[in-house]
Design a protein around this nucleic acid. Structure first.
Lengths: 345, 345
DNA sequence: TTGTATGCGTTATCAC
DNA sequence: GTGATAACGCATACAA
């Protein structure tokens, strides 16, 4: 009885309630122009029959799909390893659960961009949230401008007009992290930066620099990594190899910070006594590390929810939607950063 | 031109190719009964127009949605923190990308189970992959038996007939972990077990027990956690409080193992010299821990892919589908486990 | 406010 | 092999 073949239709409800299909449709779609008693009887019929509107039919007739796509690139090993992405997905999905939009998850591998484009352009969704698109990504050619889009993370310059995105305050977060180290008395603060081809990497590097300049300190100790633990270790090694008396490190993410942990241990440098460290993302790994890692937390799942919310606003065309939404970060102080011991050297 | 309103239809293709809609439909659906030249001209017309079939219309007419749902419970904070779930999602999505099924991600919160059921029963999808369903979950009442389903993880007993699921070899993995500790010379091997209401927790505990019994060792040192680091720490504390001379620990997941790290440090117990530890899942955190954590890896994303594959087989009704699919685990040995130093005591 | 009629883009059932 | 034509289940002008 519940099977697809036997599912009750709008017509069945209409018959049972003694009204026309149009009226039932109005009730289902919450039209205000329905007499209370009619509304009641229709609702009852719906209830009794366990009627559920057929999405395909509705979509076909209304030319709206009531679905949005979430597009993530397939560097998925990388992608889903980052709790950040998983949380974005979670935020989007959870928000959508409160609406009647369905979520279609698209993994776009390098080879399937054409397929993804067709999907997006084929009228399968009313809009899309695009997470971590690459520089010069061909994926969105033709899509932007045709389909409402919201990006996760600031896109690369030049940002096309009317590009909507949600991002964390990477610059501010990085600045706060470094200011924290400065207040602790650290003076030679290095950074393990993120990749140059990701705006998050660029912005966190900038925050580090701004804070040092503002404090009248030198901003010359920087090495780039690719957000992986191994790259963090490599960068730390390079920094130590310069021979500079480093007493503080700001890593652009926690994974690289943890990679640095191992290298510092090899060099018999204690955390935080000799070198204080601050990471970014507030990974789960940050709190279980020894010592627990101070980190800049970004509200990933809230960001996902916000992207979904904005996209729906865009789709509904109600009011104006801000093009840039920057969410605040929060410094979580743990044992990896502490005031410097005044042991002199 | 590419916008939803102006998308080329089947009819447009038919007109341009000088054939009927029916023929175009046959071409699109790969029917064998189409003359080569007709086929060619239709294909060309499709190409030239950039035609993409409308999913809703197709679904309405064919009574198939070409979409499957991925249902995850909303303990999402917990859920998406576990890389395991993120990887399952990734595996399912990636496999689906190679088919022409779309993926609909459903987060089922406690309050929305009814909504989720309606979605599943409303003919929106052809089947569903259900991850981490709870014991006595009301979600699936009526769904099972109506819609093809594949579970992630062994469901609780009694397993209803014809329940398909994919799981890791939790018992075998745990056994391997403990056998490894035994080979290392450890004799008092405790376990930090998972929750009793999750089959993974049950199975890993059983593996621990089996291995100890097989080795002629006592299996009496067990404490349960809930897979969180804090619970792991608590369990470790409780184990140490027994006063037993523990020299090995098998934790049912890496997070709890890392929680135990901190407690062992507090007690001045060295890893692996005094206590060797093995975890489960092979989290990213396992390799960056100090010392790196030996862990049992399960092929999470492959499991996701397998679930999708089985589900599609089930939907297509081709051949018989195995009800239980158990994927092998692999022990990744790292520094947290090593041969016991023969320093005597 | 409610009902009638038509169309949404495909698939599927027929004849041809 | 190919082409009409009737569903598919719902939304929506339009009429009442």
């Amino acid at each position: 009885m519940q099977s697809r073949s036997g599912a009750p239709t709008l017509e069945a409800v209409a018959k049972r309630a003694g009204v026309s299909r149009a009226t039932v449709s109005r009730v289902v779609n919450g039209s205000p122009k329905v007499t209370p008693d009619v509304l009641a009887s229709v609702r009852q019929a719906i209830e009794e029959l366990g009627y559920v509107p057929n999405r395909a039919a509705r979509s076909l007739a209304s030319r709206r799909t009531q679905a949005i796509a979430l597009v993530v690139p397939e560097d998925t090993a990388k992608v889903f390893d980052e709790p950040y992405f998983a949380q974005i997905v979670q935020g989007v999905a959870t928000h959508l659960a409160t609406t009647d939009y369905a979520l279609s998850l698209l993994i776009s591998s390098a080879g399937s961009t054409e397929k993804t484009r067709r999907y997006l352009l084929g009228g399968n969704v009313d809009g899309a949230v695009v997470v971590s698109h690459h520089k010069d990504d061909p994926l969105l050619e033709g899509v932007a401008g045709t389909l409402p889009l919201v990006f996760g993370g600031r896109p690369f310059e030049p940002v096309p007009p009317h590009t909507h995105y949600v991002d964390a305050d990477n610059v501010g977060g990085a600045r706060a992290a470094v200011e924290h180290l400065v207040k602790l008395g650290r003076r030679r603060i290095a950074t393990i930066a993120g990749p140059a081809d990701m705006t998050a990497g660029q912005d966190r590097l900038r925050g580090w620099e701004e804070a040092l300049v503002a404090a009248g300190l030198q901003a010359d100790l920087a090495e780039r990594g690719d957000f992986s633990p191994a790259s963090g270790a490599k960068a730390m090694r390079a920094l130590l190899a310069t021979g500079a008396p480093i007493d503080g490190v700001f890593a652009a993410n926690d994974q690289m910070a943890l990679g640095a942990y191992a290298v510092l241990a090899e060099h018999d440098l204690r955390i935080p006594e000799d070198v204080a460290i601050v990471g970014f993302d507030d990974d789960r790994a940050a709190s279980t590390a020894l010592p627990p890692l101070t980190s800049v937390a970004q509200p990933s799942s809230e960001m996902g929810a916000e992207m979904a919310r904005l996209l729906i606003q865009l789709i509904d065309g109600k009011g104006s939607v801000p093009e840039a939404t920057v969410m605040p970060t929060e410094l979580h102080v743990r044992a990896s950063s502490a005031a410097q011991l005044k042991l002199s050297a």
